[in-house]
Design a protein around this nucleic acid. Structure first.
Lengths: 214, 214, 214, 214
DNA sequence: AATGAATGAGCATTCATTCAT
DNA sequence: TATGAATGAATGCTCATTCAT
């Protein structure tokens, strides 16, 4: 929804209705972002050359800089856009669910469905975004904190309505759930065997909800 | 405990050190590793210069290459050494504990105690080691798999002895526990406030053992 | 006197300008040249971007190339146009003066009046035009040589009519006068204090005519 | 006389007496400076590549940065070193001369002798150092001002002792002389014919001292 | 073993110029 | 004529690694 000024100009002079033929908002910007995800996933952020991204997107090197200020900004944009959709979809979906445990289940499922559907994006999220402490810190204070908060709030609601135990710190429980899901993704990425990621959500919840003790 | 520059000078007149031949590796190799952890933690692997590491260790740039083949090998060594100790200590400690749930608790505690005691090492583990898919893959096949297996085996034992539910896949439960602990460490690293990490182990186990449902 | 941006807008509805066909060159060409002088003066030729010039002139980047073949050609045109006027005005003015010493005085005055009236142009002349040996050489063979010749010829006339000493090489004397005037301009440009440049002509001539010896 | 820290270290580890075999202070630094003068003279500062300088000096590109922080610093160093020697030699020489007019003559001769002996250096001085307003300003405030002051002071002395007219502003006269000499150098550089530059000093002084009027 | 000067491959970014509209 | 998005060649500088001493 947020489009840069440059991009806005672009679409203006191209087509009065930019969305007339499908869901596009700026061919090039979009293409660069997609290429970047692919290249970052393959080579890692530091080993990826801007020329690789441009090449993958089928444009000239310099064109990248008409849409992004720097290589780093591309990485940020990849994250920002994905995180934004991620959270928006999460909120939208859980709004339709009544019970807190059902909501949490949906969040977990969405988490794995989403990343399971785009392996490259998942790699960038799991691996590359952690490649620098600096980025992690910004990450931590940005969309990530919001996401963790969504989980925490849902747990608190469950504690109020009595579905969840009240002797647990909601924030810690939220981190545990997030960490567990995150680990599922990481393992899935690194696994040689390809298996569907989404079903792991129920496995995780079985433990998270019921515990491992008999 | 901090030896860096002074230690380097000492080794110049090396034969004074009674442990210089055999059992003891090399003061300098150790110093380089320690410096690397510090520098990698501060700047990140890719932004860290070999000269930074050498400088921190109080030796000449070229000397680094007498002990390590490349910058990458330093990172590997950091991991290998830490992981080795990590696992060895884990096995040693749990050998003395009878019940599986107690064992698992000890593992979790050790995990957080260890990383909580060396913030720089924790940063390198949580952040830098994930900076490249390639490394993660090697990681996954190496010490990490062994560590995860230690957890898995312990859970399986618990399932045999009846402490843990049998309707859970041990490997999945192991990943969940690992992921939860891992997330505690990551949050601790990124947190502005400094709080003790080790106590979080019990928080995690409270959920992992009992679940969040009422 | 400053037209730049506004003028450019005017030309959009071009046919309103009665002089648009024929005798008058082009508003836009003029605007570009003026903008170039300003930008070259501010940033220097090499650091000036064609986009800067276009922006200053209120036109699109590409439009510049409808009037000039290259960035270098703009610099040449700046020089050519100014030098042409410079010499033409010089010749016109001295034609009305009888005595050689009076003529030379007028040339010197015009030199400083002209550059003193347009600081940006002066900067381009003093500083930028010398930024490349290649340009200097072309410069030397072009308008500059003609200008120097104007001075030399005037001196020779003075030697014939007996106002000037005959034991001096006219060309050398011409260079000396030119160099002295040139230095006045350079100093004026670099000076923090702003003082009128033109009056320096008489100062220079006092020395040039009478010498410094008592 | 002023050598950088790096250079100092260099010579220390190489030879206890760096001047033992001739007048060298740091082979490499010196070689780079010499190459830079040559390359700047040929191509101009902006068109000169650091690789050109390195190639000309017979060293690797990166080595340049062991002795200079940047390409710009090389240009500054070229100027600083030359100007320093220039002024020092000027002061030394005139100290031995009694009369102000004799002193001034020696300064003028030295000016042209020096630049006439090193055409490349002369080109850099006349052409490249003026390539940027910014540099000119620094130049103006640095060695150049000192040089101009040397001339001015000498003229003032001449006015006190009665050799020079007192109705002239010394600073203006100084600029005139400098400008005249400067122009001789510029013309000499641009001239196709190669003639000795130094003798022009007397030509200039003939006019500067006696004036052109009969 | 230790040094640190020297190497040179590698790369993000800029910007003059082009060209489809 | 005018536009400005797209191009892609060009380059200063960094830094892991080597090697003569």
């Amino acid at each position: 929804m947020d489009t840069s000024a440059k991009q806005a100009k672009n679409t203006k002079s191209k087509s009065q209705n930019p969305k007339s033929n499908g869901a596009f908002v700026s061919d090039k910007r979009e293409a660069i972002l997609r290429s970047a995800i692919k290249v970052f996933a393959q080579k890692g952020y530091f080993n990826a050359k801007v020329a690789d991204i441009a090449g993958e997107a089928g444009i000239a090197d310099g064109t990248v800089y008409l849409y992004f200020k720097s290589k780093e900004e591309i990485l940020h944009s990849v994250f920002d856009r994905a995180m934004e959709e991620f959270i928006a979809e999460g909120k939208r979906e859980i709004a339709e669910i009544e019970a807190a445990d059902g909501r949490l289940r949906r969040i977990a499922q969405l988490h794995l469905e989403r990343l399971g559907a785009d392996r490259d994006l998942a790699i960038v999220f799991q691996v590359e975004l952690r490649g620098s402490t600096k980025f992690m810190e910004e990450f931590s204070g940005g969309g990530f904190a919001e996401y963790l908060d969504l989980i925490k709030t849902t747990i608190e609601e469950g504690q109020k309505t009595g579905v969840f135990r009240k002797d647990l710190k909601a924030i810690t429980a939220a981190k545990i759930l997030y960490g567990a899901l995150d680990e599922m993704v990481t393992n899935w990425i690194l696994s040689k065997r390809t298996y569907p990621l989404a079903p792991m959500a129920d496995e995780v919840l079985k433990v998270f909800y019921g515990g491992v003790l008999k």
